[in-house]
Design a protein around this nucleic acid. Structure first.
Lengths: 227, 227
DNA sequence: CCGCCGTCAAGAGCAGTGCTCTCGTTGTGG
DNA sequence: CCACAACGAGAGCACTGCTCTTGACGGCGG
């Protein structure tokens, strides 16, 4: 135990240092960061990095998982208490603030996909944490009646939404889940628009505008202020 | 005229061929396409490409402008006739269909920004064509009363929105312009979510879901079916 | 009609990249 | 205590964007 754990601990520390350096380079180089530059930052040969990550894509995957987990934790932290509306808005603002604090990691996970990169299945678990956090709010609101049911959705879309509802917010009506998904998509769109420069030279009161958008989406989603 | 125009025409043709080849490579390599590979495709030396584009960034800028123009034309074409709701939805679907037909160009303009790349001012003109197309619809609807005014917005956000309203939809109330901007952002978010894989293994009835989202956003925006 | 100059393409070259392979060293489990 | 696994370093391959030089072709002024 002693020896192996020492090796293992050193390996874990080295892995973290590489990821930290890579995260730093993410800011300047984006998704196509230079493994050699990362190695230089750490004072090691570029080939040594390959002892820890089999390829640059694997390093990126690790960064992506970390980003999803960090964002998911932020969302879960914010989804605590209050009315469904308050909880939903808190999650929205938490996501936005996380993205503002970690813009390049947001771009990594919600921006354009890296060309040759195929996300492994390890990423889907962390990826849906924020969705599940929103789903719990919707589920709770639905259970306590803080919700406008709306008209059912038929066809194949209706069936697919029923499956989503079962997984993310069991008990909630599919049409409510559909509107919530739209709200999540609007959330992602609003954050990306702000981060990717679509609001430049146009809107400076960005928090207010974001809040305005999320509240507006909320009225359509149909979460009520309280039971 | 004769000689210079011959030269100029050859140059324009060559420029177009380079852009076409670069667009082809955009599909596989994304924003970090290989200038040498483009040159290889055209059977010319990589250095010869620099006669037409001073750098790879300049080539990318040309592609970006072309993409904005193409998308803008598609949006303008679709914004023709009918009620404000019909015109708005037509533009939304036109944007989505253009994006589905040109996914990599969509990623180029609405995806994560290229790291070291700073968009020159030449791009803003083409960039706002689709926004202006939507703005005209809102303006017309406002003029003919097909609109729910809603509550005014105060503070700095209100002032900024008034400026936007003046530029994009003169005469329309700022709060309506704000809701329309949110609709445009939701539109971009929905297209990006679909294109960037956020709906994978979840929603297959994508056109229906997109339509559902845009109609929902529309009810909140406050465009009425007809006067 | 000829020479000249601007435009063009090609090639070599530089610094940098991802990744592989080999070679010593070091530390650890049996 | 020693063989073996893990590790770091370096060289090397094919590739990249970009620059510089060289040579050739074509249209215009004299």
């Amino acid at each position: 135990m002693t020896a192996a754990s020492i090796r293992a601990r050193l390996r874990a520390e080295m892995t973290d240092e590489i990821k930290a350096a890579a995260r730093r380079h993410l800011a300047t180089d984006g998704a196509n960061l230079s493994l050699r530059a990362v190695a230089r930052d750490l004072g090691m040969a570029s080939s040594a990095v390959y002892r820890y990550f089999a390829s640059r894509d694997e390093l990126l995957t690790a960064l992506i998982i970390d980003a999803y987990d960090s964002l998911g934790a932020a969302a879960e932290n914010a989804s605590g208490t209050g009315s469904a509306v308050d909880r939903w808005l808190a999650v929205c603002h938490a996501v936005r603030e996380w993205a503002l604090a970690n813009p390049h990691e947001w771009a990594l996970v919600y921006g354009s996909p890296v060309p040759g990169y195929q996300a492994p299945t390890d990423t889907v678990g962390p990826a849906i944490r924020v969705i599940l956090a929103l789903g719990r709010i919707v589920q709770d609101a639905s259970a306590s009646g803080e919700v406008v049911p709306g008209e059912p959705i038929g066809g194949r879309l209706g069936e697919e939404l029923a499956v989503v509802a079962e997984q993310a917010a069991p008990g909630a009506p599919p049409q409510l889940v559909a509107r919530s998904m739209a709200g999540w998509i609007h959330l992602c769109g609003a954050v990306s628009a702000e981060l990717f420069g679509q609001l430049n030279n146009t809107i400076d009161a960005r928090r207010d505008f974001f809040d305005f958008q999320m509240r507006g989406a909320l009225t359509w989603i149909g979460l009520r202020a309280s039971s």
